[in-house]
């Protein structure tokens, strides 16, 4: 399936882009991360959380095709 991924903060510095659309053939968030790690190896050393449909999710959550975002540590305020 085709999914859209958004990158923020230092994650966007690693990927050198703020979003992209890519073809995903796995099932879980962990599958998606493995595929991103092979494209952006530096992501492995970067701390982040994953949101799907604007809610935080874990590595064992199924990817539904809704909007995915990689979020570095929050630092508002």
């Amino acid at each position: 399936m085709r999914i859209n991924i958004k990158y923020f903060g230092q994650i966007a510095e690693v990927t050198q882009k703020e979003e992209e659309s890519l073809e995903f053939s796995g099932i879980f968030v962990s599958d998606l991360l493995n595929s991103l790690f092979s494209t952006y190896s530096e992501l492995k050393n970067t701390s982040f959380k994953v949101a799907q449909n604007q809610e935080l999710i874990s590595n064992t959550t199924k990817v539904t095709g809704a909007e995915i975002a990689l979020l570095p540590p929050f630092s508002g305020g």
Partner: peptide, 27 residues
């Protein structure tokens, strides 16, 4: 409210130094 904002809202602060280098803030 303030503690919840700091912990739960996806806002990202880039600290810019006087020499224009930067680092990412962590709460």
């Amino acid at each position: 409210i303030v503690e919840a904002i700091k912990a739960e809202t996806p806002v990202f602060g880039k600290e810019i130094f006087e020499d224009e280098s930067h680092q990412w803030k962590i709460n």
